[in-house]
Amino acid sequence: MLYKLNLEHILFLDIETVPQHQHFTDLDETGQHLWEQKTQYQRKDEFTAEEFYGRAGIWAEFGKIICISVGYFTHKGDIRSFRVTSFYGSENKILIEFKQLLQDHFNHAKHLLCAHNGKEFDFPYIARRMVINGINLPYKLDLFGKKPWEVPHLDTMELWKFGDYKHYTSLKLLSHILGIPSPKEDMDGSMVKDVFYKENDIDRIIAYCELDVVTTAQVFLRMRNEELLTDDEIKKV
């Protein structure tokens, strides 16, 4: 089935998220209490709620999206290219522009969304933040009433599981073992919060997010036993 999919019908994506506020003390009293309750089992007795707040970007109820990067294949004759672009700015702007992309170019039954760990993180996170921002869900993220085989989502981590639900493999590890060349990275996911709030360097975050999109596409190609993208084939738009 994987080999029969048309690459041009797949939108590869990745998101970067941070806590809604820079500091725990910026939350109101109710928010602080709810954060303490939400994370009590993850924190156990090792961290206070305030010490644990740096991880708030993981939860859609306490985080926000600062970048969505996407990539898609195009073919003109024998020439293949992978076009990458990003949405950034206010979260509301990001979500509206991403929704418009889906509605204008990836809104038919044949179209699919693909991300690494997307089913557990990216797709539900985007949907939840759209609801919080008062944005109607686009068809590709509105899963109510859909049967499992009708959900238009691909997940490279799920594909790698081969039915093993206990197995977690990071994108970095998967790309390494599949022999995908890894460009130099000047940051990792744990640094996004500080790069955003302290350094105010959104361009650095965009570059990091776009790299993950390209890597996800490369992993997908390897799973189909196809040639990897070359630098010349990757176009930033």
Score class of each variant (00 low, 15 high):
residue 174 L to Y: 06
residue 199 E to L: 11
residue 55 R to W: 08
residue 8 E to F: 06
residue 148 P to E: 08
residue 195 V to G: 09
residue 3 Y to W: 10
residue 69 S to V: 05
residue 121 F to R: 01
residue 5 L to T: 04
residue 117 N to P: 01
residue 31 G to L: 05
residue 211 L to V: 02
residue 93 K to M: 12
residue 223 M to D: 02
residue 84 V to L: 00
residue 67 C to G: 13
residue 34 L to E: 15
residue 106 F to W: 01
residue 181 P to K: 09
residue 143 L to S: 10
residue 61 E to M: 04
residue 109 A to D: 14
residue 160 W to A: 12
residue 173 L to H: 15
residue 231 D to C: 00
residue 7 L to H: 04
residue 18 V to D: 07
residue 5 L to A: 08
residue 124 P to C: 08
residue 69 S to L: 03
residue 73 F to K: 02
residue 108 H to I: 02
residue 29 E to D: 12
residue 23 H to D: 15
residue 200 N to D: 07
residue 67 C to V: 15
residue 18 V to E: 10
residue 64 K to L: 07
residue 45 D to V: 13
residue 208 Y to I: 03
residue 89 G to F: 05
residue 154 L to W: 00
residue 150 E to F: 05
residue 139 Y to A: 10
residue 13 L to D: 01
residue 104 D to V: 02
residue 111 H to A: 02
residue 225 N to W: 09
residue 173 L to D: 14
residue 157 M to A: 05
residue 125 Y to L: 02
residue 132 I to R: 08
residue 1 M to Q: 03
residue 164 D to M: 08
residue 93 K to F: 12
residue 72 Y to G: 00
residue 227 E to M: 12
residue 186 D to W: 01
residue 5 L to G: 03
residue 196 F to K: 05
residue 117 N to G: 01
residue 182 S to N: 14
residue 16 E to L: 14
residue 118 G to Q: 00
residue 132 I to T: 05
residue 151 V to M: 12
residue 62 F to R: 09
residue 91 E to S: 09
residue 233 E to N: 01
residue 37 Q to P: 12
residue 227 E to P: 04
residue 228 L to E: 06
residue 10 I to G: 02
